[in-house]
Each structure stands twice: as structure tokens, then as C-alpha cells.
């Protein structure tokens, strides 16, 4: 008996060491109104990655985050953080999580130093002035440490909220629309901060409406639509697999309709007949560009310029959300 208990403990420790940062299984949430916010969601987020969770308004992103953080009760399913169940082992699970919520909610009557120190204590950590100082300096808040929060600008308040979430050195950081309504400079600063956190081994889960943000930072992307995860993929692979290229041919003489000889290429007319647009698959073996250009010449059309552009993550996202297929 004495030998099996430590062995079981060691096994659990080893399992937890290999556990993903977040493991969600069969997670559902139906509100009292009957609204089904999440429908049996399964999702695994790897340790140390930046995961962007994308979805239109009301898709279930915030509900998902709030369940993981303990703010909303799930109707069904399980969630584990670093192998710890959020209900059974709530202390271990929650102590690993930092949350920056979407809304700017902060006690304005406290000083920056006091509110950040409060957050550290709340998460069960001993007072550590050096750490709080480092966090404030990293977020360019050090010179505001004695200022009351309600005297700060919106951008600064957002930084304070991030500082509060980082004060207890979380291993998993949830950023729910962190850059909503902030200026470009602060957004860039936040991106740099997120990368630094990732370099330290922190797992970051990001929801954003700015697809550019996900494209810039995420290692993997998940798309949620009407409470269902419809796609989880490595960002680079996603852009390669679902991305399309556009070839735009600028004509010397505008045309009214696509000539019959070019009908097979599926061209579109743009810019008042001055451009022919051809969309092709980047992953396809043959793009058809050579044949197209040859056929344009044979059709008697002369062109003065050719441009290509790659579809962005936003294009892919819009396509996915519009049509789950």
C-alpha cells in the first residue's frame, strides 16, 4: 500500500507534465434563456503556443474562456488546465491562469501598484515587489505606479489589466479581445509583450476581431461558429491549404464582358472592365496561369500590367464563417 500511493502520485505527475495546457472535452453551455452558446466543444491547446480563437460576435468565444476561468458554469463536459480539472482541482487549475477580460473593468480608486499587488495576493502568491516592478516596467506603467487608475487613459487602463493578469506569473494567459479600441502603438506593444510571454513558456489564448492580429502572432488558429469549433489548424498550414491567390490583369482596352474564349478560366471583370481577375489555388499542382495568359493573347486582348496577391487570414476566416464547408 505504501509503495502504490507514491507510484500513483508519480504517474499523475508525469501525466500532468505531458498534459496539454488546456484540454476541453464535450463542453456545452446552454443559458437559462435556452440559448446554446457551446455545443460539445473539444479543443486541445498545446503548452507554450499562441492560440488564436476566432469567431464572429456571439459565436461562443467569451463563454468558452469564462468557463475555463471559472466565471461561467458549464452545462456539460470537462476542462483541464495543465492536467488539473477546473472543478475538482480548481485551486491548481486557476492558479495557472491569467485572464484579461474583454471589458475594461478595474477599480478606479486604487493606485496601479495597489491593484496589481492585490491581484498577486488574490491568486495565492506571496508579496513580491521586485516582480510587480518588473511587470509594471515591461508594460510601461512604472512611472504611473502611484497614480489612481481612474486618472489613466483607456490604453493605460488596458495595460493595468494585463499587469494584473501577469502579477501571479500564470502559465496560461487568456487575452479576450486585448486590443479592442486601443491605438496602433499600444497594439504593437501588446504584440511584443505577448511574444515575450510566449518566449518564457507561457501559453497564450487570444480572441480577437482583428484577424491581422491573429495572422501576426498565432501559432495555431481555431475558428468557432455558433458554438461549434469548425476548424483548428496550424496558421501557416491553414493559409497554405485554404489560401487563394489572385491574379489581376490590367487591360489596355476596357471590355464589357469576358470573351467566350476565356470562359473556361472563370474570370471576373473588375475596375469597370479594365481588369480581369483570376483566382487560383496556391496548393494546386497547376495554377493555370500560363494557359490563361496565352489564351488572353489569343483572344486578342492586350494587357499592360499583371499583379498577384495572396489571400489573408481574414479572407479565409470570412469564407469559413460564411460557409462551414
Amino acid at each position: 500500500m505504501n509503495e502504490t500511493v507514491p507510484a500513483a502520485k508519480i504517474l499523475r505527475s508525469a501525466e500532468r507534465a505531458e498534459a496539454p495546457a488546456i484540454a476541453i472535452a464535450g463542453l456545452s453551455k446552454t443559458y437559462k434563456t435556452g440559448f446554446e452558446a457551446l455545443k460539445s466543444v473539444d479543443l486541445t491547446i498545446r503548452s507554450g503556443e499562441i492560440f488564436a480563437l476566432l469567431g464572429p460576435n456571439g459565436a461562443g468565444k467569451t463563454t468558452l474562456i469564462n468557463i475555463v476561468c471559472g466565471l461561467v458554469n458549464a452545462s456539460a463536459g470537462t476542462v483541464q488546465v495543465d492536467g488539473y480539472d477546473i472543478i475538482r482541482d480548481f485551486r491548481a487549475a486557476r492558479s495557472r491562469i491569467g485572464l484579461v477580460p474583454q471589458e475594461l473593468v478595474i477599480d478606479g480608486f486604487e493606485t496601479v501598484w495597489a491593484t496589481v499587488s492585490f491581484s498577486r495576493g488574490l491568486f495565492g502568491k506571496r508579496r513580491d515587489d521586485a516582480l510587480v516592478e518588473r511587470v509594471l516596467k515591461e508594460l510601461s506603467l512604472w512611472d504611473k505606479k502611484d497614480s489612481k487608475v481612474n486618472t489613466l487613459s483607456g490604453g493605460m487602463k488596458r495595460r493595468v489589466m494585463i499587469a494584473k493578469a501577469l502579477a501571479h506569473e500564470p502559465q496560461v494567459l487568456f487575452l479576450d479581445e486585448p486590443t479592442a479600441g486601443v491605438d496602433v502603438e499600444l497594439r504593437r506593444d501588446m504584440w511584443a509583450m505577448v511574444r515575450r510571454m510566449r518566449d518564457r513558456g507561457v501559453t497564450i489564448i487570444l480572441t480577437t476581431h482583428y484577424i491581422e492580429e491573429a495572422e501576426e502572432m498565432a501559432d495555431r488558429v481555431g475558428v468557432i461558429r455558433k458554438g461549434e469549433i469548425i476548424l483548428v489548424e496550424d496558421k501557416t498550414a491553414l493559409m497554405k491549404n485554404l489560401g487563394k491567390n489572385r491574379l489581376s490583369v490590367e487591360l489596355v482596352t476596357p471590355i464589357d464582358a469576358v470573351p467566350e474564349a476565356l470562359a473556361a478560366h472563370g474570370l471576373e471583370i473588375a475596375d469597370g472592365g479594365r481588369r480581369l481577375v483570376y483566382v487560383y489555388d496556391t496548393a494546386a499542382e497547376r495554377t493555370g496561369i500560363t494557359t490563361l495568359l496565352s489564351d488572353i493573347g489569343k483572344a486578342g486582348l492586350r494587357f499592360r500590367d499583371i499583379e498577384t496577391s495572396q489571400s489573408t487570414l481574414e479572407d479565409i476566416f470570412v469564407g469559413l464563417v460564411r460557409d462551414p464547408q
Binding site: 476561468c69 491548481a92 487549475a93 486557476r94 485572464l99 477580460p101 477599480d107 488574490l122 491568486f123
Partner: peptide
């Protein structure tokens, strides 16, 4: 709205 912090703490 700051109650979120208390409810999400261990």
C-alpha cells in the same frame, strides 16, 4: 465588473 477577478482566483 471587477468581481471577475475574485471568481476566477483560486
Amino acid at each position: 465588473g471587477t468581481i471577475y477577478e475574485v471568481l476566477s482566483a483560486p
